[in-house]
Every structure is written in structure tokens, then in C-alpha cells.
Write a protein that binds this DNA or RNA. Sequence first.
DNA 1: TTGTACGCGTTATCAT
DNA 2: ATGATAACGCGTACAA
Lengths: 335, 335
Amino acid sequence: MDKVTIADIAKTAGVSRSTVSRVITNNPNVKPDTREKIQSIIDSYKYKPSSLARGLAVGKINVIALIIGDIRNPFYSEMVWMVENILTESGYMVVLCDSGYDIEKEVSYLQTVKQLGFSGVILASAMESNDLTAILKTMDCPILLINRYIKSFECDSVLLDNFQGGYIAARHLIELGHTKIGILAGPVKSTSSLERLEGCKQALQNFQIEYREDFVVNGNLTIEDGYEYGVNLIKSEGDKPTAVFAGNDLMAIGIMEACNEHGLRIPEELSIIGFDDIPYASINKITTVKQPLHDMANMVANRILKKIQEDNSENRKFIFTPQLIVRNTTKRLED
Amino acid sequence: MDKVTIADIAKTAGVSRSTVSRVITNNPNVKPDTREKIQSIIDSYKYKPSSLARGLAVGKINVIALIIGDIRNPFYSEMVWMVENILTESGYMVVLCDSGYDIEKEVSYLQTVKQLGFSGVILASAMESNDLTAILKTMDCPILLINRYIKSFECDSVLLDNFQGGYIAARHLIELGHTKIGILAGPVKSTSSLERLEGCKQALQNFQIEYREDFVVNGNLTIEDGYEYGVNLIKSEGDKPTAVFAGNDLMAIGIMEACNEHGLRIPEELSIIGFDDIPYASINKITTVKQPLHDMANMVANRILKKIQEDNSENRKFIFTPQLIVRNTTKRLED
DNA sequence: TTGTACGCGTTATCAT
DNA sequence: ATGATAACGCGTACAA
């Protein structure tokens, strides 16, 4: 039983391949009778057109790539889950690509996207890089950025007001009386991490608190990096922060783990605030800055669909507002 | 600047397309000089062959689908992360598909896999179903099952000894003196969940403890379901379990959350054991049954590669051994 | 070692 | 409303 093609359907229906193709693509130029007849033959044969062949003919394939930094980060996996549901509903297949925050891998994925003729790309991990910008400019499909902003490349983007997020996080700690605030920021190349840091600085400045370079460290947004930071913090001599702003919840969790192991009580001896509000933040009662994940995911999915359908629409930025969620890991500084 | 094709390369190189194609596919029948010359032209043009066209010609495309139940489950996302790394290294693109434990969605993904001519499929969420078996039998690429076993369909599979996993979990609780053991099992249609339950029963029987139907509930492996179970447990009247075996860590976490909220102390008033040993289990010091994720992921990736390369190899099952990890959520029953 | 010619399964253009 | 035919870009027997 060989593979059944459009030619087989055409033959048994006694029509040309063109007509069969028309009913497949919902072209109105088909007599209702013939359409019905052909459709029934298609059904009975359980015939499904080859997406490869169609893709070659049309130049596009109904697949959208979703490139993210780390699928193990619950913030992303929640986002992915929602976006995929919407896109699948609309007949697109979603391809998930984990870049590991590695630009080289990102570029390589984009290359594949081109070679396969995908309909669109959603980039959630894009950091600044010449190579990236270069290939981005050669892409021949809509591109959407999540929580990232690439100066040298103009396109749609859905983002959080990260500056404000960093600001309200720091302000919260300051209002609790903390003045020695440690910052475990995200990667230097990530614009959103940078903006959160800037927001932090702004808050410190507004409240006339000294910004100390030696209290700032960059991590890679993983639990491991948070843990490492926590251990270093505990073992360090001399002046220590009384509160820490972590670039995301994962790192906050890592810090807490280190503290637990070394008997440093939270929040009595150290206040910690995270970012994202992943499920584990609520379970472990971590004070954090929430991203409106639900709304953002919806926007992402619907926006890319729109871009694919009408490619003439201009580029826009959609900015969402962060929200402070106070839980049990931050506490007023006793003096 | 139009899209550059193999013909363009051939023309500027002064050879036929065949020769160019040969250097692309690493066919040895090319004079070293010409190969070098052509390659340099390819490089300078940054030419990349269309995977679509190649796929149509060859009948296969270098993509492997990885269908999982719920990407938000850290056990899966860890697995995905590792498998994807290995497969990407070997030149395959990995497509991640989230089925939401929905067989219909699973079937639909497999349909897409066929239409797109993928090189292989890895199924981690496959449950028993006629529709599923039907389409599985028509797939024209290697199939690999993770932690699932489909009676009606013969293929490679990488799995944990789930029966033993359930057994050692229950035995641990029994050895701590518990006799009233609640079970929050996984979905009924999941063979691995079923086997864990069977292992549980066996342990109860071996130790001559009554198996109580009314202490067994099925959940969908999510935190939410665990939480709901926990609340019900707390609010229920009369005879209650003193210990609970959760079908996976996520549900164990949910139960713990419910207990925390309602002031039920763990492990003093209720012992809980999970399954999988996801990172949050170790962070939250949850006693659990560990799956050797690392080894399993390696096996999965390498096995599907082998299957793709030599399709004549016969089907095998690779069974891994679970391991009890005792932490802080289980405790000897005081009497 | 290289070139010719055909096939892969669809869609799209142009007649009819 | 329908059919013939030419793309789409590549791989590969087969011939040279």
C-alpha cells in the first residue's frame, strides 16, 4: 500500500489534480457536487497532502518557531504552554527551541527556520549580537520579540516594563528599611535584565541610597547560579547586604536554598525578592515582581498570527505592567 | 537580491547542479579541486539548501518530534533539555509538542509528523488508545516510547521499572509503621502510573496490610490536582491516611501546599512521598523515588539516532531502576 | 569525475 | 468550472 497522493485521488475521482487541489485549498471555483464527491474520496482514503510538497510550492510552511532561553524555567514553560495552545488551535505547528541563552544556537535555529520556510518566529531569549541582527535582517517571515529589545533591529515586541519592575522591587526593600541591597542581576547581554537593574538604580537614587558596585553580581537566571551567589554571600567577610534583589525567581530560590543549608534565616537575617512570579514562588511564599504572563502570552500568540496574515501591518511594541507581590521572604529591617 | 539556489551556485562555478549537489551531500565522487572551488562559492554566497526541497526529494526531513504530556512538569523539561542537546548536536532539529495528556492532540501531532516527513518521533506521554495505535502503525519513521508501554504496538521503549518504584515507595512508608496509606495515583490510562500503583499494592500485600479502595484517587500529575487532593484529605471526616504516596513530585508539592495552608504539619501529622525527584523535590526536601533522568535521556537520544540510521535494528526495551531518596517529608508513625 | 534527465507532491497560471 | 502544464529546489539513477 503505497503512499496516496493527489494524483491518486484525482484519478479515482475522474478529475484533474487541479480540481482536487482546489477542494483542498478551499478554492471557491469548484462545483458543489464535484467538491462533495472529491471530499468523500479524500476522506475514505484518509488522504493528507504532503506539507513538504505544498511548502515547496507555496514557499511557506505552517510552522512557527518559538525560541526560548531555557525551557526549564517555569516562566518560559508556562508561556510556551499558553502560546502553543492558541497557535495550534489556528492550524500552526509550534516548534520549541531551547537556546540555552546561547546566541550561536539561536542563530543556528534561525538558519533552520529559513531553510524550512517557517511562517513565523517568536524569540524570547534574544540578546544583543551582531550575528543575530545580521540573520534577523535576512529572515523572510514575521518576527516577534518577547521581553527583549534589539536596538539594531526593528520588529514587533511584547514586553514587560522591566525598568519599573526593577524599580518597585528595590523600592519595596528600601521601604522596609534596607539600605544595603545586594543585586543578583541577569546576563549582561539581556536588555530586560539590564533594564531591571536600571530601575533598581533609579530607586536607590530617588531614595538617596548609595549604589554599590560590589553588591552587584550577574547570574545566568538558573537555580544553580542563585545557589552559588547565596553561598558566596554567606561566606563573605565584612559588609554584607541585608536584602537581595534576584533577577528572577529561579535565582531567588537558589539563594534561599543556600541560606537554608547554611542556617541563615529568611527573612529575619536576609530579605529576598524575586522576579516573574512562577508557581514555585507562590508555593514557597517568595516575595516577587509578577509578570502578567497570561495577558502577555495571549498577545504574543495573537499578534504573530496577525503579522503572518497581513504582512503589511507596521511594527509595534506592547508593554505590560509588573506588579509587586509581597509574601514571606521580605521583612522590615530591625535596628 | 533573490533567493540563491543550487542552480546559481552551479552556474557561477561553471559546473552542473549535480556536482554542486554532490559536494553538499558529501558524495565522494568529486575531484578535490572542484569540491574546494564549489565549496568556497557556496560559502561566499552563504548558500544554504532548502530543506523543504531536499525533504521532498529524499522523503525525509532532519527533524525529530518529541511529544510530551506537559512541558510544565520539570521532569519532562529536564529530559527535553538533555535530549534536545544531543539530537541538535547530531544535526537534527527537535520539535517539542505538548499534548496536555490529550490523546486527540497526540494523534494530531503524529499526523503532522507524517505530513512533514519527520525522521523520528519520541513519545513520552502516550497513553493507551485505539486511535493512537492506529496512526502509530501507519507511521513511516522510527518511534520511541518513554516510560510508556503500549500493548498493541511494538516499538523501542526506554522506561523505568515503575512497578518496583511503586513498591519501594510503599515499602518505605510501611517500614515507618504506616498502615493507612493514601494513594494519589496518576491517570488511569497511563501504564506507568498503573504499574506504580500495582507495585504499591504488591508491597501492601507482602506486608499484609489491607488495600483500601477508598484511599486511592487518580490525579492528572499537576500541582493543582495535588492541592485539591490535599484539601479534600484535610476536610474529610473519619478514617484518614497517615501517609500518602503521590504519583509524582508535582502532586506531592500540591498536597504539601494544601497542608501548609491548613496547618497540617508534615511529616509529623502526615508523611508524603513523591516520584521523579525533580529539582524542587530536593529543594523542598521531599522524600521521593528518583528516576535516573540523566541516563534515560542519554539512552533516548542515542537510541532514536541509531534507529534512524539503521532501520533494520529490532525493537528493544531499556529498563532503568528507580531509587528511594529519603528526605524530610516522611517520618516514623508515633503510636 | 562529471553531466543529463527525471521524479518528489503540490500549487498556480493560463487556457478552455 | 475544469484541465494541462509549468514552476518550486533538490537528489539521484544513468549515461558519458
